[in-house]
Write a protein that binds this DNA or RNA. Structure first.
Length: 458
RNA sequence: GGAGAGGUGGCUGAGUGGCUGAAAGCGGCUUCCUGCUAAGAAGUUAUGGGGUGUUAAGCCCCAUCGGGGGUUCGAAUCCCCCCCUCUCCGCCA
């Protein structure tokens, strides 16, 4: 949320900032509402002041045994006027707040100006020499994953709906290994590991900027006022909402693995194949709470920490600085990391690292006490994926695939850093313990029996 | 889910209708004193908003005692709803 006083004092600058996002948005209506609101506020406060003085006198007279009926009648009349003014003012506030919450953050002056992703700027590229590691006829992960018994698209859809995928065998273990590897690595880089709730309330969603504007992108519980988190950013950034931190404690650096749930409203038809755009996916998120002074350096460090994962996994990638028009709603500066996918001969986003300035902090009530002035200041918030697990699985399948063995079975090499986690150097296509490919409908009985046998009372 | 007890300032904790934006203690800050790894004295110390100042200090006003509504001339205090915490019971991995 932008500072209403800044908007009031320099609406032109705010409008210019919004224009850099290529948005047809202006805060003029907010300023107009604010003027009306302030006029009512002042009138109301004057009346309140009168009422307070009068009712105090009533008390004094009564304690002396004097009559105060006339004063009481006066005060009552004032109270009634206050009530009316207050209702008008509240209505204006509701309107103004609704508008204000829908205004995105103003991009940093450092961000390249542009309308869409075509104006993003490549700032770094790593691992070009590794781009040809995969065979020339490398399979895309949506073919390789099912062929190796790792990704089962049909059965994910069956038990949920489209864009839900079942991971099994090595496919499940690879994700688990990646989660552990990333969390371990980030711990070494100074992040405290968290396990936050996966459901959050509307306040938290508002704090990080998902609500009210992006309600349609969220999964919501029907009988409880709770939402499934679209990213660990939401619970983790809101952890200290409405608390006051000490400057000496900052920055706070957290890492958190969570599943993420997104309705992907408006993305119909995009990335419908494969494991790239799912309603549910795993992600290790990095979140920092910092002072204004620390923020830029901590942001760049966080980007480097996310890159470190790609480097350790030896996955070729490039770092893009997002232009003003391509940045998320709450961000003021953002870098995306894009991993190379040989199966598609393209770079695909695998991490997005944003600095939000005090935009989220204002919404969430994140403050710290400044050591220099002893006053309360807004925190700055920073976060980024470190990394998206599902897309890392995709990148490993596509980059590390090996030529089929003598029997024509597919194989995928294991990145060196993951070998201790997976306890193998090569992932081989496996016959699933339970039938994986086409199963005749009759044999569904077999499946059930298998499940029964393995059942344990926990 | 049922029953009971609670939610007050950075913390502990008083406060059942006006003199309480809030006692007291702790902590923090400032000054003074003491020649010592500490103690003492005095003062000061909530947040947000509005107004007035050079978008300084200061001053004035309004709001805030979990959240929202109500009663009243006047509410931390009375009433209603909700949220949260604790204890016991129930249920449950």
């Amino acid at each position: 949320m932008l500072d209403i006083r800044w908007i009031r004092q320099d609406a032109e600058a705010v409008n210019a900032g919004l224009k850099r996002r290529s948005l047809h948005l202006s805060v003029d209506a907010i300023v107009a509402l604010d003027n009306q609101r302030l006029a009512l506020l002042q009138e109301e406060e004057t009346l309140r002041s009168q009422r307070n003085a009068l009712s105090k006198e009533v008390g004094q007279r009564k304690s002396k045994g004097e009559n105060a009926d006339e004063l009481m009648a006066q005060t009552k009349a004032i109270a009634e006027r206050i009530k009316i003014l207050e209702a008008d003012k509240d209505a204006l506030e509701v309107q103004q707040n609704a508008l204000l919450l829908d205004i995105p953050n103003i991009p940093s002056m450092q961000s390249p100006v542009g309308a869409d992703e075509n104006a993003n700027v490549e700032v770094r590229r790593w691992g070009d020499e590794l781009k040809n590691r995969a065979p020339k006829d490398a399979l895309a992960h949506w073919d390789l994953g099912p062929a190796m018994g790792m990704l089962d698209f049909e059965r994910g859809v069956k038990v949920a709906q489209s864009r839900f995928t079942l991971q099994r065998g090595w496919g499940a273990k690879l994700s688990r290994a990646l989660i552990n590897f990333m969390l371990d690595t980030h711990e070494g880089l100074g992040y405290e590991e968290l396990r936050p709730p996966y459901l959050v309330n509307a306040d938290a969603m508002k704090g990080t900027g998902q609500l009210p504007k992006f309600e349609a992108d969220m999964f919501r519980c029907q009988d409880d006022a709770l939402y499934l988190i679209p990213t660990a950013e939401v619970p983790v950034t809101n952890l200290y909402a409405n608390e006051v931190l000490l400057e000496s404690q900052l920055p706070f650096c957290f890492s958190a693995y969570t599943p993420c749930f997104r309705r992907e409203a408006g993305s119909a038809g995009r990335d419908t194949r494969g494991f790239i755009r799912q309603h549910q996916f795993d992600k290790v998120e990095l979140v920092k709470l910092t002072t204004a002074e620390q923020a830029e350096a901590e942001h760049l460090k966080l980007v480097a920490d996310a890159e470190r994962i790609l480097q350790l996994l030896e996955l070729p990638y490039r770092a893009m600085e997002l232009c003003t028009g391509d940045m998320g709603f709450s961000a003021q500066r953002c870098f995306d990391l894009e991993v190379w996918l040989p199966g598609q001969q393209a770079y695909r986003e695998i991490s997005s690292c944003s600095h939000f300035g005090d935009f989220q902090a204002r919404r969430a009530g994140l403050k710290y006490r400044s050591e220099a002035t002893n006053k309360l200041e807004w925190c700055h918030t920073i976060n980024g994926s470190g990394l998206a697990i599902g897309r890392t699985v995709v990148a490993i399948l596509e980059n590390y695939q090996l030529p089929p063995d003598a029997q024509g079975r597919y194989r995928v090499a294991v990145p060196t850093v993951l070998q201790p986690y997976l306890k193998t150097e090569i992932l081989e296509a496996t016959e699933a313990v339970h039938p994986f490919g086409v199963v005749e409908s009759d044999s569904s009985l077999t499946l059930l029996q298998g499940a029964e046998k393995g059942r344990v009372n926990v």
